[in-house]
Amino acid sequence: MARELEGKVAVVTGAASGIGLASTDALLAAGARVVLVDRDDVALTTVCGERGEAAIPLVIDLLDSKACSTLVQQALARTGHIDIFHANAGLYVGGDLIDADTAAIDRMLNLNVNVVMKNIHDVLPHMIERRTGDIIVTSSLAAHFPTPWEPVYASSKWAINCFVQTVRRQVFKHGIRVGSVSPGPVISALLADWPKEKLLEAKQSGSLIEASEVADVVLYMLTRQRGTTIRDVVLMPTNFDL
């Protein structure tokens, strides 16, 4: 693989597993140094130990607002600059709204929406000063279709889609690209919260994709010429039927 991101520094949230880890691996293979942000200290230590010095662990619970506010500062202290910020960390709440735990709704909306906005708010001054940068947000196919079995989760991703599209228009004049990747069902820990019948149906029909396929799209977005922004990519299993 061509090392198209040689010398770049990336920050990936939710990096110890799933799409975050797959994105990290793609970035490392392309030559970037990556700050892996996750709250799971043990998993993060293991993952970074297996990937060498270019993988830099940063243990933060993003739902702790005080700790969350230190993310960019801590990443810069370790690397000196940030070229790429992949806001990937997220939670899932599925099923009928009436059955949802309201505390779980609060946690999910906080991580899926508020934390994404705060992290990007904090990294923008650095990127604006340098007049370059890439921001990618992990959204979802649910951001493009009113998915009946996950109204809470889908709503969080609709909000993020609006955020990506509006912030992009504010910051492109500073040389900053903003985009989102919107996968259909991905084989990851988030699916553990899917309704059992829906998960079984998806597995039996071949309606799931690998996290590495999402990472391939992330890398494609990052390696376009600076004059081109891939604002949103929707990818789904070929057999997926809404």
Rank of each mutant, 00 (worst) to 15 (best):
P57R: 13
I160N: 04
V116S: 12
D83F: 14
V164C: 08
C162Q: 01
T45L: 11
G20Y: 01
D106F: 13
A103M: 15
Q73Y: 06
L71H: 01
T138L: 09
F172K: 14
T102K: 09
R231N: 12
G90Q: 09
I136N: 07
M221K: 10
I230C: 08
M117D: 03
M127H: 05
V171R: 11
Q73P: 00
H86Q: 06
T79V: 09
L71Q: 09
P185M: 02
E213N: 11
G133E: 06
G184W: 03
L21Y: 01
T223H: 05
P57L: 02
H174L: 03
P148C: 09
N239A: 15
I84H: 05
A159S: 09
L222H: 02
S155I: 00
A43C: 04
Q204P: 08
V186G: 00
Q225T: 14
I60T: 05
Y153D: 00
Q204V: 12
V115T: 10
R3Q: 13
A159W: 00
I187W: 00
A15D: 05
I209W: 01
D122M: 02
L62Q: 07
R231C: 10
V11M: 13
V218C: 05
I120C: 04
V217E: 07
F145H: 10
L191K: 12
A15L: 12
C48V: 10
W149L: 06
S188N: 06
G20W: 04
E201F: 14
R78I: 04
P183E: 00
D122N: 13
Q170H: 10
A87M: 01
Q165V: 00
A75S: 14
R3L: 12
A159P: 00
Q165A: 08
D61Q: 11
I136T: 07
P125F: 06
S205P: 06
M108Y: 02
V9R: 04
E213P: 00
E197T: 15
T138W: 03
L44H: 04
